[in-house]
């Protein structure tokens, strides 16, 4: 028996699944039309203070750009930005989209933390079984909706706090084609350095420019006497900077109970300089 195959049958299929997916992508592009720069903040490794760097940088940029800064917390299973920026719901929804929460400094925030009960893990209603098969697709769908359905408005910067893992930049790059440049956050240890190296290579594979490296927790500074000691062995920030010929945007010390405003200011300066 012979019969025509898909491409031989002229005319579109009524479901237009490919077109529906294309329309989803178009909505991302349209929504981000008012956003001047999308900046992913990535690490490849958890626990390096990536969300802290994202939140602190957002506050600093908001101070400089009259609040025209947004933070998309793409860490769906471990959202922390909401607390750091003191952003609260409920979120207003109308036909045009979802109004983001407003955090400290007027920073516009969208995060899974706004949708879940405090302390509750991310759970999916469906499917009933084999969730491990679908989880990645469902998470990608939520990231797409966070980009496309949130009324981000006119922003100078949209910082995207990516979850740990070298592949997370690929998910974003699939949805946003014109990423301005990623920031890679590491701590000084070589264990962290190696993970961040993988994330940088993933970004390069996805044709995402990396603006530079941030070395967080480069030292511990006593908040009483100002004495500084190293927290970790190694100099991963410097090593990555040299290996990839990327600027070391900032080295941020850990100061208990205090924001490292000086170092974050340096980071904001270096980011703006290197983006331009």
């Amino acid at each position: 028996m012979t019969y025509r195959t898909y491409r031989e049958v002229e005319g579109s299929d009524r479901s237009r699944l490919a077109e529906q997916v294309g329309e989803q992508r178009n909505r991302v592009v349209e929504r981000l039309a008012g956003v001047e720069r999308v900046i992913p903040v990535m690490s490849g490794k958890g626990g390096v203070g990536k969300s802290y760097v994202t939140a602190a940088l957002a506050l600093e940029l908001a101070r400089r750009y009259e609040g025209r800064v947004g933070v998309l917390d793409a860490d769906l299973t471990g959202p922390t930005v909401v607390r750091m920026l003191d952003a609260r719901g409920p979120l207003k929804v109308d036909a045009d989209g979802v109004e983001p929460a407003t955090g400290k400094g007027g920073v516009r925030v969208m995060s899974m933390g706004l949708l879940l009960e405090s302390g509750q893990p991310l759970k999916w209603r469906e499917p009933d079984s084999e969730q491990f098969v679908w989880r990645g697709t469902l998470e990608a769908g939520t990231l797409r909706e966070f980009l496309a359905d949130v009324k981000w408005g006119s922003l100078g910067f949209l910082l995207v706090d990516l979850p740990p893992g070298a592949a997370s930049i690929a998910n974003l790059a699939n949805l946003v084609s014109d990423v301005a440049g990623a920031i890679a956050v590491t701590i000084p240890s070589e264990e962290s350095g190696q993970s961040v190296e993988r994330a940088i290579r993933s970004a390069i594979d996805c044709n995402v420019d990396v603006v530079g490296i941030v070395e967080n927790m480069c030292s511990y500074v006593c908040s009483d006497c100002g004495h500084s000691v190293r927290l970790f062995e190694g100099s991963a920030g410097l090593r990555l900077s040299e290996e990839f010929e990327l600027p070391l945007l900032a080295q941020i010390p850990f100061v208990p109970g205090q924001a490292s405003t000086g170092a974050i200011g340096t980071l904001a300066d270096a980011l703006i300089e290197n983006l331009s």
Binding site: D94, L115, E126, L138, D149
Partner: peptide, 20 residues
């Protein structure tokens, strides 16, 4: 609808949204 897939799929808190 905005957040259609997320709202269908996630077990979220009751007061997350105010729908106009």
């Amino acid at each position: 609808e905005p957040f259609e897939q997320t709202r269908r799929s996630v077990v979220g808190k009751d007061n997350a949204f105010v729908d106009e």
